[in-house]
């Protein structure tokens, strides 16, 4: 029986049986794979509404996920701003989030010549110690004419425009509680 099916599926035979396309340019030569093709977005586990991370137009993006991996990022037609469209950078978002990503903490010791490994929790602890130490060493209670400062001029921070509002909020709140005031971001360049 398998042989008969094989013979019947041979396009040359199908040219004879399906005279509409006897020249062998359409359905008769369509392979099994082509006949069952479907877009990977249809077979995604989930699609998530997102916003492009690049510029401030704020284009809507749909992120398709399968097996815990991002399989496609394209425009969100529902967005009244972008109407489903994207620029070259926005269209490259899938590559941005999947290509060449650093996934391990890198650590360089003072005067070191190489990157070293460092596990995340140790790194967090080391950074916290350094913040506390530098803050203590450079704390200013009052200025020269006795006006309250209660700040450290030893710690600075740069960045925020590519971050979420919530991240900016926690950063400003933590730095302000620590008395670090030299906080800046791309709004100033």
């Amino acid at each position: 029986m398998k042989m008969r099916k094989l013979i019947a599926s041979w396009p040359a035979v199908r040219q004879a049986t399906n005279l509409a396309d006897w020249r062998g340019m359409g359905r008769t030569v369509q392979s099994e794979r082509s006949a069952s093709l479907e877009p990977r977005t249809d077979t995604a586990d989930s699609v998530v509404r997102s916003i492009c991370p690049y510029c401030a137009v704020g284009c809507g993006q749909r992120v398709f996920v399968k097996g815990g991996k991002v399989t496609q990022i394209e425009g969100d037609p529902a967005s009244p701003i972008s109407r489903g469209r994207l620029c070259p950078k926005g269209s490259a978002s899938k590559q941005l989030v999947t290509h060449g990503r650093l996934s391990k903490v890198r650590y360089r010791r003072p005067h070191g010549t190489e990157w070293e490994d460092l596990d995340l929790d140790t790194a967090m602890d080391m950074i916290a110690d350094r913040v506390i130490k530098t803050r203590a060493e450079t704390w200013q209670d009052v200025d020269e004419n006795g006006d309250r400062l209660s700040r450290t001029m030893g710690i600075a921070s740069l960045g925020g425009a590519t971050l979420d509002n919530e991240e900016n909020y926690l950063m400003k709140k933590l730095y302000t509680a620590l008395g670090a005031i030299q906080i800046e971001n791309q709004a100033r360049i």
């Binding site: 041979w10 396009p11 020249r23 062998g24 340019m25 030569v29």
Partner: peptide, 8 residues
């Protein structure tokens, strides 16, 4: 090559 008889 023998998959189809294509006169074009």
């Amino acid at each position: 090559m023998l998959r189809v008889v294509k006169i074009t």
